[in-house]
Nucleic acid binder design. Structure first.
Length: 606
RNA sequence: GGAGCGGUAGUUAAGACGGUUAUAACGCCGGCCUGUCACGCCGGAGGCCGAGGGUUCGAGUCCCUUCCGCUCCGCCA
């Protein structure tokens, strides 16, 4: 059918549209059951399916709560039935009728409301709809571009509605817990000051102060610390944060943090509070009791055994350093690599050559040259590298890794970052591939004792691992004496191998904060101009304080078992950071630019 | 900045080594149908094969450029 004829049909139907008037709903489309028989009810919703039998007409009426079958019967309401022939998908209607049990054998056990139907006495057409570009149902999966272009239709799908409802339940649960714990919800500025550390800022030009810019906050970090100085004691915010970096399946340029800060606390107090928060949310939202406290692991142990700082502890593969064992090997890579690690995979001997090749391609993403492996068989070690290994080296590997017949061992040798990234990510991939990861399991873990700094080879200076407001463990003198060895009073909460939150005990002494900036390579002048307000505040009786922030979007995604953060955000951006529905970002008029004192840049000539 | 996957009716997809009229399902439109529930039956319409250029007698298919979506590396204190 052509677009025109559909428009004609819709225009014709538009003539039947009536105002809502004083019609009020008595129920949603998800709640009526055989307990409500004979009740007079009024429902509103969208036409999900129409099944027109010429005589009887069935319609599944949908709202966010669910589906209810309504039936138009010529003998009961001839006028209502006659008019019902115009109904089409996604038309909006208000119906009035009575609840009755479906005839013998006609109940639909797949629907909550499947035992009943509404016999329509009268109804109003509230609006027509063009044929939707995709079916509003969970079964079919339209392309991401279509869904995002017509997000308002995508949101009608139960899957998306459910995501947003779960998200709502989580934030409400969080608010209740924190409110009961004496936390005060405070909003902090969206137009704020650009700081050079950390992610790239989104900038907003100032009209009143031409040539100057606000930045959108990467997090409310400094404001929440200043609220502690302000005596607020316990603060939280469901805070929108902005980072102008490239997107991923779990990263959007604007996202939401549950941002929390507390005065007069140490790590233990913050972690206990955070565990209680998780327990509360799991109980409220999933009806599940969590075991407290969560296990803890140091950063060093995580990197050593798992290759990542956010281990997935739902399954038990471990990495093990074997540098000293195979260092003398005739395998040239082993003889020269600064770090050699191995991962024993019980039962992995059955992996095919093709599977191993795929894993080899996979680790190359992380910079690996290849992937060495040994299959432990009863008669021999099958491996491209076994011939380079002496008897002593083999015995060393057996002892160190606990090798048994039927295992496969993967090796990675080279720069430590690469070795850990390659094997650490391969570990997760293997866990999925071999079905080692139990379903419906939620493994929480604290990772602690992070390094305070890491060395940035490009900028030739130390940068803060967490952020520059984090206290060092022990003697603050370590900042100047040996920054590489300094540990942070920081902690990350990890759920099933994903970082869901992170925080620290902050520096509350101005002098210590100055020394931190010095260690980071700031001149006193730069530190003063960028963070002078913080240092001044710390000089005015700042209480010891610390906190934590949770990535709400990621958390919701994990609880729902979804693979994309976009599915828990009402109006997300595409990978190119655009909105397909509104077409943002977009050019602005020369007048708008002039008012901001910004010159229109000519497009470069081809 | 880099690597990979994808773009064919409204939608989801199939289209062997370049070959004659580009398929299917669902949706849509019309007709029939009083117990369906992703109703059924009959009929019908619907396509610049993302866009531009090239190779060729001939391109959805091969080559180049480009746009869009997705996944990942870098990046994300």
């Amino acid at each position: 059918m052509t677009d025109d004829s559909q428009r004609d049909l819709q225009e014709e139907h538009q003539q039947h549209v009536e105002p809502l008037g004083d019609f009020t709903r008595t129920h949603t489309c998800g709640e009526l059951t055989t307990a409500d028989l004979k009740k007079d009810v009024r429902l509103c919703g969208w036409v999900q399916f129409r099944r027109d039998h010429g005589g009887l007409i069935f319609v599944d009426l949908r709202d966010r709560a669910g589906l209810t079958q309504i039936v138009f019967i010529p003998e009961v309401a001839p006028e209502a039935h006659e008019k019902a022939h115009i109904l089409r998908s996604e038309y909006v209607v208000a119906i009035e009728g009575y609840v009755r049990e479906r005839p013998e054998g006609m109940a639909n056990p797949n629907m909550v409301t499947g035992g009943i139907e509404i016999v329509v006495r009268s109804w109003k057409l509230l609006n027509t709809s063009k044929t939707p570009p995709f079916l509003i149902e969970d079964r079919t999966d339209p392309g991401e571009n279509l869904r995002l272009e017509h997000r308002y239709l995508d949101l009608r799908r139960p899957r998306m509605t459910n995501s947003l409802m779960v998200r709502h339940k989580i934030t409400q649960s969080v608010r209740r817990y924190l409110d009961e714990g004496g936390f005060i919800e405070v909003e902090t500025p969206i137009l704020t000051k650009s700081t050079p550390e950390g992610a790239r800022d989104f900038l907003v030009p100032s009209r009143v102060n031409q040539g100057e810019f606000y930045a959108l906050p990467q997090s409310p970090q400094l404001f929440k610390q200043l609220l502690m100085v302000g005596g607020l004691d316990r603060y939280f915010q469901v805070a929108r944060c902005f980072r102008d970096e490239d997107l991923r399946a779990d990263r959007q340029p604007e996202f939401t943090q549950i941002d929390i800060e507390m005065s007069f606390v140490d790590e233990e107090a913050v972690m206990r509070m955070a565990e209680g928060l998780m327990a509360r949310v799991f109980k409220d939202v999933m009806g599940k009791e969590l075991t407290l406290p969560f296990p803890r692991m140091t950063y060093d142990d995580a990197m050593s055994s798992y290759g990542v700082d956010k281990p997935d502890t739902r399954f038990d593969l471990r990495l093990k350093e074997v540098t000293d064992i195979v260092r003398g090997s005739e395998f040239r890579l082993f003889a020269t690599a600064p770090l050699i690690k191995a991962m024993r995979v019980p039962g992995g001997e059955s992996l095919s050559r093709k599977e191993i090749d795929d894993f080899t391609d996979y680790v190359k993403i992380f910079g690996a040259q290849g992937l060495a492996w040994i299959k432990i068989r009863a008669d021999e070690w099958q491996s491209p590298i076994a011939k380079f290994l002496s008897e002593k080296e083999r015995a060393g590997l057996v002892a160190a890794l606990g090798l048994e017949v039927g295992d496969i061992v993967f090796f990675q040798a080279g720069a430590p970052d690469m070795v850990n990234a390659a094997l650490g990510n391969l570990r997760v991939r293997l866990g999925e591939h071999l079905g080692l990861i139990p379903e419906n399991t939620h493994n929480f873990l604290w990772v602690t004792d992070f390094p305070l700094f890491e060395y940035d080879a490009d900028e030739k200076r130390w940068v803060a691992c967490h952020h520059p407001f984090t206290q060092a463990q022990g003697d603050p003198e370590v900042l100047a004496k040996n920054p590489g060895s300094a540990r942070a009073r920081a902690y990350d909460m990890v759920l099933n191998g994903t970082e869901v939150g992170g925080g620290s005990i902050r520096i509350h002494n101005a002098e210590v904060q100055r020394r931190m900036f010095t260690a980071l390579g700031f001149t006193p002048e730069d530190a003063e101009s960028q963070f002078g307000f913080l240092m001044q505040a710390l000089e005015q009786g700042a209480p010891p304080h610390g906190g934590i922030a949770f990535g709400l979007d990621r958390f919701v995604m994990l609880l729902l078992g979804l693979g994309s953060i976009r599915d828990v955000i009402a109006f997300p951006k595409t990978q190119k950071a655009g909105c397909l529905m509104t077409k943002a970002p977009s050019p602005v008029s020369p007048k708008q630019l002039r008012e901001l004192g910004l010159a229109l840049r000519e497009k470069p000539k081809e």
